[in-house]
């Protein structure tokens, strides 16, 4: 348990904000670019791929990977800020 309760709550709140931000990007990259707007994006050419097709089959995965690593980095900083790291 952390030293005091309000700091624990502030930590949790910031944690949720980080998660929500990254999940919004996660949603836009996969469900947005790869599914909902795929046909519109296909009008754009991207290194020989129709852009929507690229997002659906490769791009979204690269975004996922970037997100997890960004999250790891953000959380390590947050843990130190609130002094809850191990």
């Amino acid at each position: 348990m952390s030293s005091n309760n309000s700091s624990a709550q502030a930590y949790w709140k910031e944690n949720l904000r980080i998660i929500m931000t990254y999940l919004a990007i996660w949603f836009v990259a996969s469900y947005g670019c790869g599914i909902l707007f795929v046909d519109a994006l296909d009008q754009i050419q991207f290194f020989g791929f129709p852009l929507g097709f690229w997002f659906a089959q490769q791009g979204a995965i690269f975004v996922f990977l970037g997100l997890i690593w960004a999250y790891v980095f953000s959380m390590n900083k947050l843990d130190e800020k609130y002094d809850v790291h191990e």
């Binding site: 990254y22 599914i35 795929v38 097709f53 089959q57 979204a60 995965i61 996922f64 997890i68």
Partner: peptide
């Protein structure tokens, strides 16, 4: 599967990787 169904194969490509974002964060 992707070879035979083309773009729709994205459900597996995204579906079986996007879950790791949820795992890591949630």
């Amino acid at each position: 599967i992707v070879s035979f169904i083309g773009r729709d194969g994205a459900v597996y490509l995204m579906g079986w990787t996007g879950g790791y974002v949820l795992l890591a964060m949630l």
